[in-house]
Amino acid sequence: MLSVEQQATIQASIERLNCSTRQLAATFYDHLFKRAPQVRDMFPPQMSPQVIKLEQMLVYVVGCMNDTETLFPILDELGEAHEGFGAVPAHYEAVGASLLDALADSIDGWDDTQLAAWSALYGMVSDRMIAAARKQGAA
């Protein structure tokens, strides 16, 4: 669970986006495919629908970050689905680093406090998704 301070930092940083949330999502994919080009084949050739899905999920996660009762079942489903797409824990590391890079590019005044808060949020999300994927894979 995130601290109240981390939640406030994340909310405040969203208000300082220097682009749309859709552009943030697109920037994330630019970073991801540069960092881990081997994952590009896991995605459709036309990325617009995927960018929209990520944008919606980012908005949802930020909106529910303090309500794990609502958030965790969705993350479980996502983890199970991503396991089916071939995602492995190493991919989550590349995704996290790419997300943080995209946020750094897209938030005015990006600093270590924001980095720590977003890292904590992504850690919570990825840990839950990886656990769900492992459970699905063991079933």
Rank of each mutant, 00 (worst) to 15 (best):
Pro73Trp: 10
Gly109Lys: 04
Leu2Gln: 08
Gly137Ala: 06
Ala102Pro: 03
Ala36Asp: 15
Pro45His: 11
Val61Trp: 04
Ala132Cys: 05
Thr27Ala: 02
Ala81Leu: 13
Ile130Met: 06
Gln7Cys: 05
Ala116Ile: 14
Ala25Arg: 01
Thr21Pro: 07
Arg134Asp: 03
Leu121Gly: 01
Cys19Gly: 01
Glu69Asp: 15
Tyr92Asn: 06
Ser98Met: 11
Lys53Ala: 15
Leu99Lys: 00
Asp101Pro: 06
His91Trp: 09
Tyr29Ile: 04
Ala117Pro: 01
Ala102Val: 08
Phe43Pro: 14
Leu75Trp: 03
Pro44Cys: 09
Leu17Gln: 05
Pro45Leu: 12
Leu75Met: 06
Lys53Arg: 15
Ala133Pro: 04
Asp41Ser: 15
Ala117Arg: 00
Asn18Ser: 13
Asp30His: 08
Lys135Thr: 02
Phe72Arg: 08
Ile52Lys: 08
Gly137Ser: 07
Glu5Gly: 06
Leu78Phe: 07
Val62Lys: 09
Gly84Pro: 03
Leu24Phe: 10
Ala90Val: 15
Pro89Glu: 12
Ala97Lys: 10
Phe33Ser: 00
Ala25Leu: 06
Gln50Trp: 07
Met1Cys: 07
Ala131Asn: 03
Glu93Asn: 12
Leu58His: 05
Lys135Gly: 01
Met57Ile: 08
Gly96Asn: 11
Ile14Val: 12
Leu115Pro: 03
Met1Lys: 08
Ile52Glu: 12
Met57His: 07
Ser48Cys: 06
Thr21Val: 14
Phe85Gly: 01
Leu103Arg: 00
